[in-house]
Computed example of a mutant assay.
Amino acid sequence: MGFDPRQWSPHRDMASWPRSTSGQRVTSNVEAILRENDALRREVKRLQQELERARRSQWQQPSAHAPARISAEQVQAWGAAMARQPGWSQLRQVALDALIDQLNRNSFPSRLSLQQRLDRLVSGLGTDLLAAVGPRTTKKTAAVMAAFALYGVRASEWLEEDPARVVSELCQLQTQSSRRQTQANRRQTRRTRSDRRTTDREPSAAAVSEEEKALAVLGLQVGATQEQIKQAFRRLVKRHHPDVGGSAHAFRRVNEAYQQLMA
Rank of each mutant, 00 (worst) to 15 (best):
R197M: 07
I229E: 06
S247Y: 00
Q102S: 08
V167Q: 04
E227C: 01
F251E: 06
W88S: 00
F3K: 09
Q24M: 06
R136W: 05
R154S: 13
P109T: 10
Q85W: 03
A232G: 09
L40E: 09
L170M: 06
L173P: 02
P203I: 09
L96R: 04
N106T: 06
S178I: 07
S57G: 14
N185F: 10
L121H: 00
A54Y: 01
L159P: 09
F251N: 05
E157T: 12
S156L: 03
L91H: 09
M145N: 00
M82K: 05
A214N: 07
R235D: 14
S123K: 12
S16R: 14
W78H: 09
Q24G: 00
Q90I: 02
L96W: 04
L34E: 13
A80Q: 14
I229D: 03
R190L: 13
D38E: 14
M145S: 06
R120I: 02
Q116W: 02
W88R: 01
S9R: 15
Q172C: 02
R19N: 02
L91P: 09
R196E: 12
L220N: 05
N104M: 06
H249S: 13
E227I: 10
R187K: 13
A206W: 08
R105I: 03
S123R: 13
W17L: 14
V237A: 15
S209K: 11
S63M: 04
E256Y: 07
P10N: 12
D243K: 03
S28I: 01
S113N: 10
C171Y: 00
A205C: 00
V217E: 05
L103D: 02
A147E: 10
L51I: 08
R191W: 05
L40S: 04
D243A: 06
T192C: 07
T127N: 09
R197H: 05
A32E: 14
D97E: 14
